[in-house]
């Protein structure tokens, strides 16, 4: 430990403070500025490390093939080449995969919103026997990872003839325990008086749901929507299993695997495909950051 020099003064115990009331204010701004600089340095290094993989991917996807092996790697595409994107789009069937992903995601998001709203409404507003038990059943789904149900689910899909169909791709995900929980909580926030006022104003259950409950639950709906979008778009295991043969309903994530696997020589094309696949979600992140954070932390703040 250093001797009691003035430079270590600020870090010493608080008991000393009153003894030197005049010295602290003089030293503080410098210290503070130093700390601020340290904080920004740390933040910037962190940001660079976090961003680097994606940034390099974007840059590489825009480089001409000859520049790809250049070392040090170019950090800015001075002469951006869009050719790889065109190739990924047409030869890699990325256009089809994107469309499939969009359809799959839309079905799952809408389905989850609808089933969660309905069940959440029932759990929040209606009285029926075994309501609590049923709610526990809903929450219990959170304890069973999808991977654990894979064995039988593949058989079920096969028996239903749902391989390579949007039904097979989406139906298992049309309900969500988290979503139901989220909407139930949001509905429970609505004061009882509002329901009763609406009842007296002549609004039945359905109209109350549409005109009062849903508008008031908008933040929860948005959070759930963004969350399902993210989860659905990024699904990998299940789409891989059910879209095994043929491009019919193959999603963009599986398309990426194929870009990587079958055209090893075309790294640049694979990277272009990666950028295409992640772009919609980066937009989603920037636009809906608040909703995304809300939905991802719903379990933590509970």
């Amino acid at each position: 430990m250093r001797p009691d020099s003035s430079s270590s003064f600020g870090e010493r115990g608080s008991g000393r403070r009153p003894e030197h009331p005049g010295r602290r204010p003089g030293r503080r701004p410098g210290r503070r500025r130093w700390r601020l600089a340290a904080r920004y340095t740390l933040l910037t290094i962190g940001a660079l490390v976090v961003l680097a993989p994606l940034y390099l991917t974007v840059v590489s996807s825009l480089l001409p093939p000859s520049a790809l092996a250049e070392r040090p790697p170019p950090l800015f595409p001075l002469d951006p080449q869009w050719h790889d994107y065109a190739v990924a789009w047409s030869q890699g069937d990325l256009g089809v995969y994107l469309r499939n992903s969009a359809i799959q995601t839309a079905i799952i998001v809408c389905g989850q919103l609808v089933t969660s709203v309905l069940a959440g409404y029932a759990f929040a507003f209606l009285r029926f026997p075994f309501k609590r038990a049923l709610f526990v059943v809903f929450l219990a789904t959170l304890m069973i990872p999808f991977e654990v149900t894979l064995v039988t689910n593949t058989q079920t899909i096969s028996e239903l003839g749902w391989y390579n169909t949007f039904a097979g791709l989406t139906v298992p995900f049309l309900a969500t325990g988290v979503g139901t929980f989220l909407l139930r909580q949001a509905f429970l926030q609505i004061p009882r008086d509002l329901q009763e006022a609406a009842t007296l104003d002549g609004y039945g259950r359905l109209r109350f749901l549409l005109r009062i409950a849903l508008p008031l639950a908008r933040p929860a709906l948005a959070a759930l929507g963004v969350f399902s979008f993210l989860a659905a778009w990024n699904q990998y295991l299940w789409p891989l299993v059910v879209t095994g043969s043929g491009n019919g309903v193959r999603t963009v994530q599986i398309g990426l695997k194929l870009l990587q696997g079958t055209e090893v020589s075309r790294t640049d094309v694979a990277l272009a495909g990666t950028v295409i696949a992640v772009l919609p979600l980066l937009v989603l992140l920037v636009v809906f950051q608040k909703q995304l954070v809300r939905s991802l932390t719903a379990g933590a703040v509970k």
Partner: peptide, 17 residues
């Protein structure tokens, strides 16, 4: 209730926010 044609003023006012 909706067919009784009575109006209620609640303690909390129950305005639709």
């Amino acid at each position: 209730p909706k067919d009784r044609d009575v109006a209620m003023v609640f303690q909390s006012y129950a305005l639709y926010p």
